[in-house]
Design a protein around this nucleic acid. Structure first.
Lengths: 339, 339
DNA sequence: TTGAAAGCGCTAACAC
DNA sequence: GTGTTAGCGCTTTCAA
């Protein structure tokens, strides 16, 4: 019962070429015929077959998204931003997750290419040279959210993690803290790991407060924050403030500290990063650096669609840095005076 | 440039039918020719065009997902479950969000249909009759996650919300509580709203403890929990325990109670629902009903793929109820004896 | 303005 | 076992 363009043509007594023309407004069609065709389309409830159209046009109106983990708000909120923008254009999103596996990421690029997507958004953690080659071989527009040192020649949108970390660290210094620890991400992660750490380090160095043994490392989880804090508190030099590379680690850190009888923020100030929901909801609510996740997504997809539609081969190098914002809440406070 | 099956055929000195055969193993091909074709495929790095194949096969290997909100873990974890299963089969996911808007949900069903998806998974809040009609008109396999009173004739997978709520409520009774409040969802929401409330109500009625004025209502957010608790505490009859329809409301409830000087669980026991990440991480960690989100997704997609591949028209009515689990944590405790 | 026909890249009868 | 051919449903020259 699938009604096709042929069926419409027959019923309206015209050729399918004409039907196609009224469908796409691609060429002038006389008012009368147009009306007739439209009427038939209306009451057969005809919808052109998108697959056939894709084949003919060599354009699928599909956009591929590759993301490390769908269930983590840090990523899924970016997708949400993309989705709510694209919803009104007639593109659809083909979404795949990689579980942070580079091989899988590369494989997905190929799969999505074969599926004929018109463009790609990569929400990235980090890549390698093989990954980079896969991107180049993709042959159609790509935009990255978050960027990657391997791929700085690909258009991207992200925040300035370095600067944000400087500000967060400086904020702790301004509160009078001197022993300021960090629970960082892995340095192999260029953005959330390396840049956030370097902002912290450089700021402390400039203030003459940097100490190498006030640093713990983890992979952005609650448990990593928990154990990171455990490690920091085991040092003889007691920290009075901690900067965490993400909110989840901040939560873990606070949890551990609380269990050890330390009051946050009275005995220990803690800053997170990202401003995911939990930062606002936690008790104490957590001071953090707010990332505009949804906006990241929106700008990325906007850029991508533009590249697709205007066929800007080798698009002029787009790099867009969005604004972050330090959100002060209950988990940070002026350092207790010693007595 | 783009290498096609014709190109392969020419280079290998065979017909494209033969190439197609070795590509799909659809018919026997002599070893020698097969080897030759494979070699050409190999060194041209040929990948068959998925769109053309779809058109010919009338099968897109695309599966549509309609979900209320991508950034909410309650939904995105279901997607994650779907995605990690489907990744190994050669289907792809076309995901759209509705922001809980029924019109949009209906519209998405049509769009996805036009895009030629082979099946649909609906992660639903609730629908109406028009929505139900759209599903019937879809004409290809559909599976719902969470089900809906309007659509009980569509295969679904979910937990037994009613039973789970009974257990949670009974647990509070067993702890000695008598004034047990609830912050429920809207009753128009058949699963998380209505069923969870009814489980609570019936269990209390049976125990002779039900009181209508111990109930607040909200839309599953932190703020709703916060205000719900505010409302409950404003009653003269002081509750000693509260069952919340989701974890976020439980967090809001605890936050408000804490701000009023009540200790959780000492002065007030709180139970949530869902077991999202925050329930484990919060201080106090929250007793809750664990939903197997990822498994919900996995079973749903498994069922759907089966329906697609085995072409079970009007599939024998599948309804699958998965197991929930009460997870006891720090937010609940035996009722303080009065003195 | 409109129609006929070729073609997008692939699969699947149908012959040989 | 292999090739020829006719589609799948749509767009787009090219003529008329």
């Amino acid at each position: 019962m699938k009604v096709t363009i042929n069926e419409i043509a027959k019923r309206a007594g015209v050729s399918k070429a004409t039907v196609s023309r009224v469908l796409n407004n691609s060429k002038p069609v006389s008012e009368e015929i147009k009306k007739r065709v439209l009427a038939v389309i209306e009451d057969t409830n005809f919808k052109p077959n998108a697959v056939a159209r894709s084949l003919s046009l060599k354009k699928s109106h599909l956009i591929g998204i590759i993301i490390p983990d769908l269930s983590n708000p840090v990523f899924s909120r970016i997708i949400a931003g993309i989705e709510s923008y694209i919803r009104n254009l007639d593109y659809s999103l083909l979404i795949t997750a990689t579980d942070f596996d580079i091989e899988m990421k590369i494989q997905h690029i190929h799969i999505l290419k074969d599926k004929g997507v018109d463009g790609l958004i990569l929400v990235t953690d980090h890549g390698n040279s093989e990954f980079y080659e896969a991107m180049l071989a993709f042959g159609k527009p790509i935009v990255m959210v978050g960027s990657d040192s391997f791929a700085e020649s690909i258009p991207f949108v992200r925040i300035d993690n370095y600067k944000a970390s400087c500000e967060a660290t400086q904020y702790l210094i301004d509160l009078g803290h001197e022993k300021i620890g960090m629970i960082r991400g892995p340095l192999t992660d260029p953005q959330s790991g390396k840049e956030r750490f370097e902002g912290y380090r450089d700021t402390l160095v400039k203030a003459g407060l940097y100490e190498e043994n006030l640093i713990a490392e983890g992979w952005y989880s609650f448990d990593d924050g928990y154990h990171g804090m455990e490690m920091l508190l085991s040092k003889s030099q007691r920290v009075t403030a901690v900067f965490c590379a993400c909110d989840l680690m901040a939560v873990g850190a606070i949890k551990y500290a609380s269990e050890q009888g330390l009051k946050v923020p009275l005995d220990l100030s803690v800053i997170g990063f990202d401003d995911v929901e939990i930062a606002r909801m936690y008790s104490p609510s957590i001071t953090t650096v707010k990332q505009p996740f949804e906006e990241n997504g929106r700008i990325a997809i906007e850029t991508l669609v533009q590249m697709i539609e205007e066929a800007e081969d080798l698009a002029p190098f787009h790099q867009q840095i969005l604004k972050h914002q330090l959100v002060v809440r209950e988990s940070t406070i002026i350092r207790k005076s010693e007595e």
